[in-house]
């Protein structure tokens, strides 16, 4: 239900914003806007149906693990 409300809200906001952008010739901006809105709706729907979203903090933790380890070994991060 919450996903439907968010979808309706985003569609109404898009209906207000997109025609102005489209007539102004900003097609790239429209494409980006639609993609991001779609991503937002999919992410929200996934969460409201109980699916776990990937956590970007985890990616950063994995990507920076060697640096974090080095800082810990130097004593700059409390172990």
């Amino acid at each position: 239900m919450a996903a439907v409300i968010v979808l309706l809200l985003t569609v109404s906001i898009a209906a207000l914003e997109l025609p102005r952008l489209w007539t102004g010739g900003a097609k790239k901006a429209v494409l980006l806007y639609v993609c991001m809105m779609a991503a937002g709706n999919v992410a929200f729907a996934a969460r409201s149906f109980g699916y776990a979203l990937p956590n970007p903090s985890d990616w950063m933790r994995v990507g920076l693990a060697p640096m974090t380890e080095a800082l810990t070994r130097l004593g700059l991060i409390a172990s």
């Binding site: 968010v6 985003t10 906001i13 901006a29 806007y33 991001m36 969460r47 970007p56």
Partner: peptide
């Protein structure tokens, strides 16, 4: 115009 979709994504994440 990107503020609304980015705001939505930030609120979810």
């Amino acid at each position: 115009t990107l503020t609304v979709p980015v705001g939505l994504l930030i609120a979810i994440f």
